[in-house]
Write a protein that binds this DNA or RNA. Structure first.
Lengths: 266, 266
DNA sequence: CAGTGGTCTAGACCACACC
DNA sequence: GTGTGGTCTAGACCACTGT
């Protein structure tokens, strides 16, 4: 077995204590000085452990205030594991959400593979995002049957992601997304009120909890006329986001020169 | 003016010395101990400065060996600012590159906006990437007229990106990419040997040098049947890559469970 | 003001690469 | 073995936040 580095060891112990609830969501951890005393180490080493957990999105460190077990409210403007709503907020667009449908206990066998369990019943939320009245994004979200109450409670004025983490007390720390280019099918065209053949991003995303369980499955259709993806790569740094605009006026060559656009991808 | 932190100050000075050639590409920097003596600081602080430059992809630190001004050969397997060729290598796919056309001094006024200069003549390289004989990606790359020799020298067995940095001695440290979903046009369909209407990713990318100049413009068409995008988000960590497969057998739901796929997105 | 995180020191010692 | 980067110490001092 490999030699255990002190700061990795400490990070692991803190992670365990968050998992088993010793440090609850939203509560503050002992101060760095206290941690260094608890683990009989130096401040620098304790800080190194915290830096790892912060990089993984598990804790949030605030200068002059304290270190907190990541709660959505605390990390909402820094973490990227967010629903589209937050991204649109950041772009200062007046996006409105309409609930198209809520389905409870639907049988959807193929989702077994996604959720990695024996269940075959899931609950689903279908939403339409509109930009100044124009439908621009169609999104379907699935949760396990046991979490259907989250969908029952959902209203359009809140992020499903945030509601989910609050109600279930499950911390989501990892997201995986697969995007394909597609030509929209009839059902999606109808809901999005588009009449011509239309290229779109088809995004499928899973959200994974601290316990390594898949707890949320999202599917989104982002039609080409309204959506682009912008990505910035600077050394190890590598970010991307979706950009939503009302149509036309989306010249990619011009977008390269828009400082605002790249600002938050640094 | 804001207080200058010591490690930021040191990082800035080292960056300047790389720009003006005091530290040349591929050569090693003084050791951390020496740096701490040169800047009259501690090793920890010198290391903090190096950590910043490493994060920006400007230097490469190798345990037991030394610290190097990032040369493509050194950082090729860690940095993400790479052409498609390297990404495909990583996926262990036998991708072959065919040169479709080389154009010199073409007038392309719209590229002024991209390259942010007065020039209107550019040189262009059109390439087709084939997977076991099947054309799967079409790519057009543009350079300023003054760098046309890079395209003259280009052969299919080398990365254009690597050739460019070697020949021009320009360090590329930042990349920006904009991706749209499109339905392929006739010209692209012809070159890719596709006969039916086909959705695709349309990627446009600029590469920016250490001097903040745009030095490379890339355009790629990645047809839906062969290409998906996979993205992983873990705290601040956020990576994506294109996945190329020979068609069919690209079930996104199955892909979520492929550990290999997500391995290098950690 | 007190309490928090952020920077910095001046080393010691460990792990790794190369000869 | 020599030289490199990586970890770690046991603090001091600075910067930020909230009372």
């Amino acid at each position: 077995m490999g030699k255990q580095l002190r700061y990795l060891e400490i990070a692991q112990i803190i992670k365990e204590r968050i998992k088993n609830g010793t440090f609850a969501r939203g509560e503050s951890l002992p101060s760095q000085k206290e941690l260094s005393e608890i683990f009989e180490t130096s401040i620098m080493t304790a800080r190194q452990a915290l830096a790892i957990l912060e990089g993984e999105g598990i804790i949030t460190v605030v200068h002059g205030v304290g270190t907190f077990v990541a709660a959505p409210a605390l990390h909402s403007d820094t973490i990227s594991l967010q629903g589209f709503q937050n991204e649109m907020d950041r772009q200062k667009l007046k996006i409105h959400t309409t609930i198209v449908e809520k389905k409870y206990g639907a049988v959807k066998a193929e989702l077994n593979r996604v959720f990695r369990n024996e269940q075959s019943e899931f609950s689903c939320l279908v939403r339409l995002r509109t930009l100044e009245g124009l439908p621009v994004i169609l999104q379907r979200s699935w949760v396990s049957f046991e979490n259907q109450s989250v969908i029952e409670e959902y209203t359009a004025d809140k992020s499903l992601y945030q509601l989910f983490t609050e109600r279930t007390n499950i911390m989501i720390t990892l997201g995986r997304e697969i995007v394909s280019p597609i030509i929209l099918g009839d059902e999606e065209l109808g809901l999005l009120n588009i009449t011509e053949p239309c290229p779109a991003f088809h995004s499928r995303r899973i959200s994974i909890s601290l316990d390594d369980k898949v707890v949320l499955y999202d599917e989104a259709f982002l039609p080409g006329p309204y959506v682009m993806m912008a990505s910035s790569k600077h050394g190890r740094n590598n970010k991307f986001k979706y950009i939503i605009k009302k149509d036309g006026a989306m010249d990619p060559l011009e977008s390269f020169n828009d400082p605002q656009l790249w600002e938050d991808l640094k």
